[in-house]
Each structure stands twice: as structure tokens, then as C-alpha cells.
Design a protein around this nucleic acid. Structure first.
Lengths: 211, 211
DNA sequence: TAGATTGTTAATCGATTAACAATC
DNA sequence: TAGATTGTTAATCGATTAACAATC
């Protein structure tokens, strides 16, 4: 089990995990790098290299034990202890994220949502309470929340971001379609729907041009 | 204006565009590579290299004309002619995407949504009609739709994907948290929320470890 | 044992950055 | 002109892939 992992390999780990979790549970379910790669569309050497960063449970001739590999990836990604997060902006996208049960299996626990609309406040989306924005700062500080998920309109995003950081947030997950600036030391991850779309469109156009 | 562009550069183009569109409109608004880079957190050489792939409008000492640069990027990404798409799965995420006006400015036009739930059918989300799944195949074929957006639960995703492909869809944008397999020649773009989260979590854990 | 499979070191490939010439 | 800025060619860096030794 090596120490170094590339950024790209890191992003592939959840995909391995996703697939492994669909496998039938059983003490001795095993899978080879080749089989994993075939399913996910990766080369087998790449799979082995990726997995070598998180696990040393691979056995020649046999492959990887599915259960132990799942545990190793979860452990490497820190999914074994949940991180608390708050979500700001209970619009359609915000509600969709609040309702997504899957986050728990990826180590994220959204403890509450905030919205500036008084009509939304007090209501509940999939068991998560929507609170007035005024209570955000206090709750973040009190609970030492480290992750803030921004799903407000682009025009309000920077303001919300600044406020989260003042409340001690260490990492921002930004779904608003705008660039945010954060001080040194705060982690910013932009969710980038337009970038994905660009890749898809370009591939499609390319394909059409060729045919 | 070169021909080649790297995958990563391609994904940065929408970010440039996003920022440029916030600039005050004016025939002679200009911006330098350095200024663009500072705002978006990229190096100035990278910005120049990226932009050289799409534009030849940069002028020494002056920079790039904002309006013409916007046009060049839009043209390069094919945003000047809208692509029609259908969306399958009018759950919370599906509705959020249907309501997102921004797609039009990124060259995507969702013409209709489909859902297997009869209660949802006939209703309308932000002006997009939700239709019964049975009508999907026919509409895709008739309108020669090329892009399918999948927002159904993971368990139904592969089935929906196969059906879209049978109806002539050329590109799949998958938001379901599962891996899909598509035949050679069909473009698949997985939207990968767990992968982003992994990067964020890892950076956060890394930061904590260091301090 | 032979064959399948892992894990690692070295080679290749692609993307970023540095250096610098061109130009307004 | 001098200085700022673009655009390109060459060098560096990082990620992927190939080759191969280790092992069950």
C-alpha cells in the first residue's frame, strides 16, 4: 500500500467503490483487476496501480477480496467517519442534494439546510430541516461544521461563501454556476456542469464531423 | 487559432466564458490573459495557450476583446446552435435540471422530460412537459434527438440507457450514480458527484493532518 | 510445476510551464 | 522607443502504460 496517489486516481476510487458495492456480499467474493477494468472501462494495469495506493489485499492468481477492498477504499477516502456539512440554498438543486441518501455512503452527513426564504424555513426535506439563514453562522460555529455546500443562485454565492468562511468552514463545495474566491487555506471544489457538457458536446460534434 | 486542444483545456473554456459573460457589455471591453488568470486562479501562460486554441483576437499590449472572445469560445464549443436533448426521470434532480435556465446559454435545449410515474405525466416543470415513458422512443426518433440526460434511480439507469440508444440517441449524460455500458460509438459522460466529493474530502483530511 | 495474477520499476505519453521572439 | 502583452517552441512535470519480476 503506497502513499502517493494521483488526483485522477483519487477520482476513480469512488467508481471502483460504487461497482464493488453492487457485488453479492460474501466473505470470499473476489475480483481481478482485469475484471474490474473491463466493467468500468479502465485498463487492468491502471486498476492495479490505483488499488495499490489503498490496499495490499490483492493476491496473485485470486485477485482482490471484494469486502476487504471496499473497506480499504472507504478507509482511504475517509468514508468510515462521517463529515458533517451544511447546505445553503434550498431551491430545486439544494432539495435534490438533501434528498440524496447516497451521501452517507460517501462519508458526508448534511446536518441542516439554510435558506433566506421565510416560507421555506421550518419545513423539512427528506428529514433535513430548513432553517433561516440568520441561524447559519451560529450553528456552524457551535457544531464546528467544516464543509459548506452552496446551492444558492450565482448572484448570492460569493456572499454566502464569505459568510461560511467567517463561521469557520474549511471546505466549500460550490454548485452555483459562478467562480468563487476563497482565502488561502480554504478548500474550494467547484461543481462544474458546464464543463462536463462541453466535453460531451465537443465529442458529439467531433463524432458528427468524422461521419 | 490552433486546431488541437487538450481535454483539460476544453473543460476550462466554459469557466472563461462564465466569467467573461459577467463583464460589462461594451464594444471595447478588453481583458488580458493575466487578469483572466488572476480571477479564475489559472496561470497566465495557461490562459493564453487555452485561448489560442479558440481565438486569434488577442492583441499585444491590449489583451482580448471581451465580446469577440465570448463569441469565439461559444463558436468553438458549438453553443451557437442549440442541441436538443431529452431528460428521463423527473425526480428532484431531474426537475432541478429542467428548471436550470443556464443550459440554453451552454448550447443545450431540453425539449421534454419523461417519467414512468403516471402522476407526474402531463404536468410541467419550468415550461418543460413531463411525458409518459412510452412516448419517449417515438419522440426521440421523430425529432432526431441526439442527447439523452439520465436522472432516474441507479437501478433503472442501464435499462433507460439501452432504450435511448435504440431510439437513436448519440450521447448520454448520466447523472445516475451507477456505471453504464454503451456500445462503441455512443458517447457517455458520467456526472460524478462522488468523485468530486472524494477530492474535497481528501484535501480536507490532508489539510487537517498537516495542521 | 505452469499459469494466472499481483505489484513495481522504467518508458511513454500528454499537459503544464518556462523561455523567448513577435508586435502593438 | 520602451514596455506590456500575445503566441509559440522547448523543457518540465505528472499520469498512464509497458515490461517484467514476484507469488500463489
Amino acid at each position: 500500500m503506497a502513499k502517493e496517489i494521483s488526483m485522477q486516481a483519487l477520482q476513480r476510487l469512488p467508481l471502483y467503490l460504487q461497482y464493488l458495492r453492487t457485488l453479492p456480499v460474501g466473505k470470499d467474493t473476489t475480483i481481478s483487476a482485469k475484471a474490474l477494468g473491463t466493467v468500468l472501462g479502465f485498463g487492468e494495469i491502471q486498476v492495479r496501480k490505483d488499488l495499490s495506493a489503498v490496499s495490499d489485499g490483492g493476491k496473485p492468481k485470486i485477485g482482490y477480496g471484494a469486502e476487504s477492498l471496499i473497506r480499504d477504499i472507504e478507509c482511504f477516502l475517509g468514508y468510515d467517519n462521517l463529515s458533517d456539512a451544511v447546505l445553503i440554498g434550498a431551491g430545486k438543486l439544494g432539495k435534490a442534494l438533501l434528498s440524496y441518501d447516497g451521501f452517507r455512503t460517501y462519508g458526508l452527513n448534511i446536518v441542516a439546510a439554510f435558506d433566506s426564504d421565510p416560507l421555506k424555513c421550518g419545513t423539512d426535506v427528506s428529514g433535513k430541516l430548513i432553517l433561516p439563514l440568520e441561524r447559519m453562522d451560529n450553528l456552524c460555529e457551535r457544531m464546528k461544521i467544516e464543509i459548506g455546500i452552496i446551492t444558492v443562485p450565482a448572484s448570492a454565492a460569493q456572499q454566502v461563501c464569505d459568510r461560511l468562511i467567517r463561521s469557520g468552514i474549511k471546505a466549500i463545495w460550490n454548485f452555483a454556476p459562478t467562480h468563487l474566491s476563497v482565502p488561502e487555506g480554504v478548500i474550494l471544489k467547484n461543481e462544474n456542469i458546464a464543463a462536463s457538457l462541453a466535453v460531451l458536446s465537443k465529442n458529439l460534434a467531433e463524432k458528427e464531423r468524422r461521419s
